[in-house]
Simulated assay, not measured.
Amino acid sequence: MSNPEIRELEAFLALADELHFGRAGERLHLSQSRISQLLRALESRVGGRLVDRTSRRVRLTPLGERLHAGLRPAFDAIVETIEEVREAARGVGGVFRIGFQGTANDPFMRAVTAFRDGHPDCAAEIVEIPLSDPFGAVHRGEVDAAVVLMPVRDDALVLGPVFSARPLTLAVSDRHPYARRPGIDAEDLAGCPLIGVAGAAPEYWRLAQAPVVTPGGRAIPAGPAVG
């Protein structure tokens, strides 16, 4: 007797879990007829019927129950071992240090939680990086990745997808004249000193966070710089 193929075992286990050919097919992205074909091939290899199927229900035969009891833990162990080896090959293990500017918001923490759940053998550590130096920690190897404000123009860095997109907001004191306006135009910044960014951040990045001219070319007064 030839050994069963992995797809036959997957089909049998999915059917044993779902007890429904349609749902088992959806789970494996296969048609019902393909699930039936794989089941018949496996039954031919073991020499007996594994599933009883009527118009009203699907259930395992005693032989199917015995196969399922022995196969499920062994199959899960194989899948787990393959995933562990795959993660080891990708280097997903140890500690993954994630740099973050400012306060870690909900989308960021959900992403970190999803990473931890998906890679239980890898500890994810959040490292605060200063506003004044968004890329330095990555260059120095102090973090493995960083979530920073755009733009990023650095050939030595690999830029991933945009993590979240939010509009820029102008924050002023409740005593500031702009606080009483229903809205302001970008040109109004010419009368409002902006807090700038000091430190090692590239000039293009600092100007993106605190521009020195309006879109129309009017100078914006420089306020204090923070790091």
Rank of each mutant, 00 (worst) to 15 (best):
T54I: 05
A88C: 03
A171P: 11
A88L: 12
Q37A: 14
A111W: 09
F163Q: 12
E203W: 03
V172D: 09
Y178S: 06
G99E: 13
R53I: 07
V143W: 08
L60V: 07
A16Q: 01
D174I: 04
E43D: 03
A200T: 10
Y204M: 01
P130H: 10
A137K: 08
R166C: 08
R153T: 12
S164R: 12
A74M: 13
E8D: 01
H139G: 05
S55P: 07
Q101K: 06
R34F: 09
F115E: 13
P161W: 06
P73T: 06
V147L: 14
S2K: 08
A77R: 03
V79W: 05
F96M: 13
T103I: 12
G196F: 03
E5F: 05
P73K: 07
R116H: 02
R27F: 09
Q32D: 14
R218E: 15
D188H: 09
G25V: 00
R175G: 04
P107K: 05
R181S: 05
R90L: 15
H68D: 07
D144P: 00
A219H: 02
A146Y: 04
A145H: 04
A171M: 10
P107F: 07
A104Y: 10
F108K: 02
I98N: 01
A11G: 02
R72D: 07
A74K: 06
S132H: 04
E43M: 06
G141E: 03
A190E: 14
I220A: 02
G48T: 14
R40Y: 05
E8Q: 15
G99M: 03
P161H: 13
R153A: 04
L42E: 05
G196L: 03
A200L: 12
I129K: 11
R40G: 01
R27W: 05
E5S: 12
H29R: 13
C192Q: 14
E203P: 00
V58P: 11
A104T: 09
E128D: 09
R140K: 02
E10T: 05
R7M: 14
I6F: 00
I6Y: 09
F100C: 14
G48Y: 12
P211Y: 14
H20I: 01
P193C: 02
H29K: 13
Q37V: 13
T61D: 00
F135I: 09
V79E: 15
I129C: 12
R7V: 15
N3Y: 03
R72A: 14
R116K: 08
L19N: 08
P73H: 06
P73V: 01
P62W: 13
P182A: 01
F75D: 12
G223H: 00
V213P: 10
L149N: 07
